[in-house]
């Protein structure tokens, strides 16, 4: 006998609450319940991954469009995305410090954040020569290898 609930309180419409202990006669039922739960969990996980991946693809498209507008002022762009963490990170390197360009980059980060408020978006900058600052798990998106 497999207990499936220690105690349930069944409150009658008239009368006092009744305590019940429920059991099932075969542990196969527990296996089936666990299997179904696992299947549902896997299905939900896969749906979340698919949805997150679509969001990241859409975000990637936005990043490309926005960075293309300032690409002449940028030396290279590195990216990292993690759909399961809902994280999208960008590192761009520039040959020199330019106040207008840095303001444009902050604007891009803000606009991406406004459009994808639930994604953790970070845009970092570094000067050419400081590529050691960029974590090794970022990949070089521009110029393409």
């Amino acid at each position: 006998m497999v207990p499936i609930a220690e105690k349930l309180e069944w409150i009658l419409t008239t009368g006092t609450p009744q305590a019940l202990a429920l059991s099932v006669p075969d542990d196969r039922i527990e296996q089936i319940v666990q299997q179904r739960m696992q299947e549902q969990f896997e299905e939900s996980k896969n749906r979340i991954i698919k949805t997150a991946t679509r969001i990241m693809e859409s975000l990637f498209g936005e990043v490309v469009v926005r960075f293309n507008k300032i690409i002449k002022e940028i030396d290279s762009v590195y990216m990292y995305s993690s759909p399961m963490e809902f994280a999208f990170c960008i590192y761009c390197t520039t040959k020199k410090i330019d106040g207008d360009l840095t303001l444009k980059i902050r604007k891009i980060e803000r606009e991406l954040h406004e459009k994808y408020p639930n994604v953790n978006i970070n845009v970092d900058e570094a000067l050419v020569g400081d590529e050691s600052l960029i974590p090794s798990y970022y990949y070089k998106a521009y110029p393409a290898k």
Binding site: T102, L103, K107, R110
Partner: peptide, 14 residues
């Protein structure tokens, strides 16, 4: 304002 936000973010970043 968006411009003020961007300016603060630039200062913070630097």
């Amino acid at each position: 304002d968006k411009d003020i936000f961007d300016r603060y973010e630039r200062l913070h970043n630097y």
